[in-house]
């Protein structure tokens, strides 16, 4: 049994050959196969090494340092108390009310924001893939949310959402959706959704660009054949577009999930985590503990928990990718 994602990976024309190569089967494929399967081939490693060295030095080393801190009592202003405490920080988090609130909010935040971004991004990409005279302009303009620095995005949305002077309230009242102004960011029930809208705005162009690029890999002939067979628009979408874009979409979702989970500048500027703890997410809580409490031990622990949660969230996807690769 081939999994679905593998079946769509090699695009049509190459499908037959590449399957043969994967299995190392036919004589014909063996020739080229040598290039890919030669034992102790250092070539792939040499291609990989620049990225690996860079990432190790600049990211992995600081990360291992922070990981180490998570097992320590490490409050910056108490240098005399720095000590190894094993799992004490981890246990402490499990009994911390704010930790659990943050975990809950992190799930809502990540799933909600990604769903909104993918949906809007996909629709936008499909439209922008069609030909019309102002396509170039539209493609450029939808990039604006993405290129606006976060501090501006956050402040702009905060003022547009303001309960006294906000333009969004004014528009909604004028259009008849609301009877009176709503203090969006001042209520626990509406603060998180409001911030999520702001992040959806900032992030959907990313998906549009990535999906747009992915759509280019679909050979036009497929649609022509389908049309000859009398396929409807939605059939073409579900049978051709979606499956063929899926691998790239999944990768984009995977990477963006990690990014969204970690993003805290918009939340911090818009609500500072409030009202109450209603917009606390794990990275925000970790940041607050680190830089206002200077408790880097506990903050690192919270960050490790975030990593664990993320690994769980994406495990299903990674396992599938890895299993597919095993078949190669």
């Amino acid at each position: 049994m081939k999994s679905r994602s593998q079946a769509v990976l090699p695009v049509l024309k190459g499908k037959k050959e590449s399957r043969l190569i994967e299995r190392g089967g036919s004589e014909n494929a063996d020739m080229s196969n040598q290039h890919y399967k030669r034992k102790r081939d250092l070539y792939p490693y040499s291609l990989l090494s620049p990225a690996l060295i860079g990432a190790t030095l600049i990211i992995l080393v600081p990360m291992l340092f922070a990981l180490g801190l998570s097992f320590m009592n490490y409050v910056l202003y108490r240098p005399q108390d720095h000590a190894f405490v094993a799992l004490q920080n981890y246990r402490r988090a499990l009994g911390d009310e704010i930790f659990w609130l943050s975990v809950r909010n992190t799930f809502i935040w990540v799933i909600g924001v990604i769903a909104l971004q993918v949906l809007l991004g996909f629709i936008t990409a499909l439209f922008l893939n069609r030909r019309f005279w102002w396509r170039g302009i539209a493609r450029s303009l939808i990039l604006i949310p993405w290129v606006t620095p976060s501090v501006i995005t956050a402040l702009m949305w905060r003022f547009m959402l303001d309960g006294n002077t906000g333009v969004i309230n004014d528009l909604l009242v004028r259009l008849g959706f609301l009877n009176e102004y709503v203090p969006w960011l001042a209520r626990s029930s509406s603060a998180l959704p409001s911030v999520m809208i702001a992040l959806m705005w900032q992030g959907f162009p990313f998906f549009s660009v990535m999906i747009l690029a992915g759509l280019q890999a679909i050979p036009q002939e497929l649609y022509e054949v389908a049309e000859v067979d009398g396929a409807k628009v939605h059939q073409k979408f579900y049978r051709i577009t979606l499956p063929l874009v899926m691998p790239i979409l999944l990768t984009a979702v995977l990477l963006r999930t990690i990014w969204v989970a970690n993003s805290l500048d918009i939340i911090f500027i818009m609500t500072g985590g409030g009202p109450g703890y209603s917009t606390y997410t794990l990275p925000l809580y970790s940041y607050i503990r680190a830089y206002s409490g200077l408790d880097f031990g506990y903050a690192s622990t919270l960050a490790v928990y975030l990593t664990i949660i993320l690994v769980m969230l994406i495990a299903a996807y990674v396992i599938r990718v890895m299993r597919t690769e095993d078949l190669h």
Binding site: S188, G273, P275, Y277, S292
Partner: peptide, 23 residues
Amino acid sequence: HPRIAEFVESTWPAEMQRAFQGE
């Protein structure tokens, strides 16, 4: 007090906002 910075930046605002909302 060394914890006053965190009090000002996060604990006080969060608890005050909860109380204002009647939580």
